[in-house]
Computed example of a mutant assay.
Amino acid sequence: MAEANATQASTAEFEPYHQGKDEDYMSPEQEAHFREILLAWRTSLMEEVDRTVHHMQDEATNFPDPNDRATQESEFSLELRTRDRERKLIKKIDEALGRIDDHEYGFCEACGVEIGIRRLEARPTATLCIDCKTLDEIRERQRG
């Protein structure tokens, strides 16, 4: 859920890519478009990590009341879980940037077909085409 919200926030400020009539899939222009999206998203997440660290340092108080302490610990725990999800997301962003460098970005890891510009704009870290992702989710539900 946090990843989906972060994705929406990161891609909201970018214009959708308009592919030229004779333009090849994952042309240098498309790679540059997605590199820009991924780098901006990564920067935004890193700034949020820094804000959290400063917030926790500034707000760390030893409350005498156990209820106040418990509330603060609960808030910090929630922030840390969110930052952990974002840390994992930063790793996925770095992996996507590596795929761009290797000119493998935008192709399904399972079957090799094009993932598609619109899917990548909605989820820039996608590694599976919609068909393979759907099958993956069905298998996951069957396993429990």
Score class of each variant (00 low, 15 high):
Y25K: 04
R81V: 02
S10Y: 01
D24R: 15
R51I: 08
Y25D: 03
D84N: 11
A12N: 14
K91D: 13
A40H: 11
R81A: 03
A6L: 07
A32H: 08
V53K: 13
D94V: 09
N67H: 13
I90F: 04
F63H: 12
R42A: 04
Q8K: 14
K92S: 10
K88F: 04
R87F: 08
T52F: 09
R35K: 07
D94A: 12
Q19S: 06
A60S: 15
L97A: 03
D68G: 08
A70S: 14
F63T: 03
E13D: 10
M56A: 11
K92D: 14
D24W: 05
A9S: 11
H55G: 01
L38W: 09
Q30S: 01
T43R: 08
S27H: 06
M46P: 02
Y17M: 06
R83G: 00
E15P: 01
L97V: 01
H18P: 00
D22E: 13
T61L: 04
E36D: 14
V53E: 10
E3R: 11
Q8C: 01
T61C: 08
F34I: 00
E75M: 09
R81C: 00
A70F: 08
E3L: 09
P66T: 09
S27V: 02
T52N: 07
F34E: 01
A70C: 01
D24L: 13
R83Q: 07
G20T: 07
N5D: 12
V53H: 14
E95N: 15
T82I: 12
E13A: 13
K21G: 04
P16R: 02
F14D: 09
N67E: 10
N5Q: 15
S44V: 00
A70W: 04
R42P: 07
Y25A: 02
L38H: 04
L38I: 06
E75A: 06
S44F: 03
M56N: 13
M46Q: 13
K21M: 15
A4M: 12
R51N: 15
D22I: 06
E23H: 04
T11G: 05
D24Q: 10
K91C: 03
K92T: 09
Q72H: 11
P64Q: 08
F34S: 00
E29V: 06
S10Q: 02
R85N: 13
P64L: 11
Q8H: 04
E23T: 01
S10L: 02
E59T: 15
A40E: 14
D94L: 12
